[in-house]
């Protein structure tokens, strides 16, 4: 198991926390909580080793496009970069939406 810590500058505050996904094959779980600090702080735990650079690239890109101050935990079970991006987008949507979250 590999744990990766990443941090990106951020300015926009979120109001709601969000939980999406499952630590199931090819999928991942995301816990997103609004933060008072001007950062998106990430802790990624992944069962797949050797992809630190890929995580760095995928997440950097995502948080360039989405400026959110949040503490984010990712529990990964071999999700592809595409799935990671989708789940992150879903988490953001849930955290900005007042509508009851629907999963899967």
């Amino acid at each position: 198991m590999n744990t990766i810590h990443l941090e990106f500058p951020a300015t926009r505050r979120l109001t709601k926390r969000a939980h999406v996904g499952v630590v199931g094959s090819g999928d991942l779980e995301i816990l997103l909580e609004p933060s008072e600090e001007p950062f998106a702080k990430l802790t990624v735990r992944t069962g797949t080793t050797g992809f630190d650079q890929t995580w760095q690239n995928v997440l950097e890109r995502f948080f360039e496009e989405n400026d959110v101050a949040a503490n984010i935990k990712i529990n990964d079970f071999g999700a592809t970069p595409g799935v990671v991006k989708l789940r992150l987008a879903q988490a953001l949507e849930v955290s900005q939406n007042d509508v009851e979250q629907l999963e899967n």
């Binding site: 198991m1 926390r17 939980h19 499952v22 630590v23 779980e29 816990l31 909580e33 735990r45 992944t46 069962g47 935990k73 529990n75 990964d76 079970f77």
Partner: peptide, 21 residues
Amino acid sequence: LGPFEQLESPHLEAQGIVPQS
């Protein structure tokens, strides 16, 4: 005991397995 309480398994990380919240 929802996901944000993070009462996850204390036995999986030691075995290299990613826990779920």
